[in-house]
Design a protein around this nucleic acid. Sequence first.
RNA 1: CGGGGCGUGGCUCAGCCUGGCUAGAGCGCUUGGUUUGGGACCAAGAUGUCACAGGUUCAAAUCCUGUCGCCCCGACCA
Length: 416
Amino acid sequence: MLFSKVFIPTLREDPHSAECKSHTLLLRGGFLSMISSGIYAYLPLGVRVLNKISNVIRTHMNSKEASELLMTVLQPLEMWEKTGRIKDMEEVMLRVRDRKDRDLCLGPTHEEEITEIAKKYIASYKQLPVVLYQIQTKFRDETRPRYGLVRSCEFIMKDAYSFDRDQEGLAANYEKMLDAYQNIFSDCGLDFITVEADSGVMGGSVSHEFLVPAEIGEDILYYCQSCQKYFREDAPCPQCQGATTQNRMIEVGHIFQLGTKYSEAQGAYFLDNDGVRKPVIMGCYGIGVSRLLSAVVEQNFDEKGIVWPHRIAPFMVSVVVVGIENEELLAAATELIRRLESAGIEVLLDDRDHPAGVKFKDAYLLGIPYIAIFGKKYLETKKIEIEVRKTSQKIALGSDECIEFLKNHIDAYQKL
RNA sequence: CGGGGCGUGGCUCAGCCUGGCUAGAGCGCUUGGUUUGGGACCAAGAUGUCACAGGUUCAAAUCCUGUCGCCCCGACCA
C-alpha cells in the first residue's frame, strides 16, 4: 500500500498533551487522534494494529472452541438492577435516556447481558459447556483517564464468558482460557506475568491477572530476586525474608471463576441429566485490547520510535525509495513489493516526494519490522538494502536473496 | 474530588512578571525555482475571535473575577 493513500499524519514534535512514551509515539506516528480527554479515534495505522491484535486473540480463542458473538452497546438499566451491580457500577456508568424515557447505559461490561442470553437459550445440560466471546467497545466514566489508551473512557475489550454444568467444567474452561491468554500475550510480543488476584466487584472465587511491567503501570507488585516471585505486599519476601523491589505493572487481562452469582441473580438455570434444575456455572475472561497497543509500545520502543513485534505490526516491510521520480528505482521497488505481497508479506511503500531523511525518520517512528531501501546504491550495485528495525542490522541483497532473507527472518520469528 | 501546571496560526513554543504602534519565531501548508542517501535551499505567499465570558484602564495576549478545556500528582478503579 502507498504511504500517501493510507493516511499517516506523522508529527515532527512531541504533542503537548502527551505524557508517557506510548502515548507520545502513538500520536506522533499517526496511529491515534485525541478527540477529548480519555477519548481517542484510531487512525488507519492504529486500526491495522488493532485488527492484528484482534486476530491474534481470535486465533487463540477459537482454538479453545470459544465462539465469537457481538453484544450491544446500549443496555437497559433493569438488567443491572437484577444483579444489584447498578450500585457498584453507578459511578462509572454513562447513562442515556431515549425518547420513550427508557433508562439505558452504554455498556461498561457485559456479564449481565450475556447472562440474559444464556437464560434465554440454554435449557439443558446438553447445550453445555459453551464459551462465548466478543471484541467490543466499552464505556466507563473514569474519574481520571490517563496515559492515552491505558485508561480511557471508551476502549476496546475482548470479553469471554464460559458456561458449565459443574465446577469441574468451569475449572477446565478456566485452564483453557489461562493457556489461551498466555499465548495471546506472547504473540503480542509482551513480557508479562500471571498472578492470582482478587475478584473484587466481579464476584466469584478464583481469579488471575495478566500484568506487563512498565514505567507507567498503575498496579504495583514487589519482586524477590532470589525467589524470582512477585508479591502484592510491600514487606520482606514472605518466602525467604529477603529484600524486594517495587515494580509497576499495566493490567492487560483478568480472568475470573464467577460461579453462580449472575446465573442465580438473573435466573439462568438449566436442567441437568439428573432432572434437577441448576444455575449455570460461569467464568469470565477479559483483555484490554486497545490498552494492549499502549502496553506493547511501552515495552517496545527505542530513541527512534516504535518497534512493533512482528505479529501485530501494521506492515511487515516499509519500502523507502530515495528519489521516487526515478523510474528505474520505482520499477524495482514495485517489483519487489509485488513479489513480497504474493508471498503474503504486507508492504508499505513510502511514495511521498520528500527528502530521504524524512522518510527514514518516519520509517523508524512507525516501527515497521523491516525497511527496504532503494536509492543510489541500488542503481550502482542492483542490491537492495534491508534494515532490521529492532537491531539496526543492515544488509545489501539482490532481489531474490532479499525475498528469501525476509521470508526466513519472518518464519524464524513466527517460531519463537 | 483535593493539590499543581498549562491554554497564543495546522504543530511546537516565545511574548505575560513590569499593560502601549500593524502579535512573533521555528516547523508545516501554497506557488515558482534549485535539490534528492539522512527532517535540504532560495524567493514569494496564505493562515490568529491570543480558550470563553465579564471587569479594571485612555489602552488588555499581558492585570482581576468566573467558566470551560487539557496535562501531571494523589484519591478512585474488572
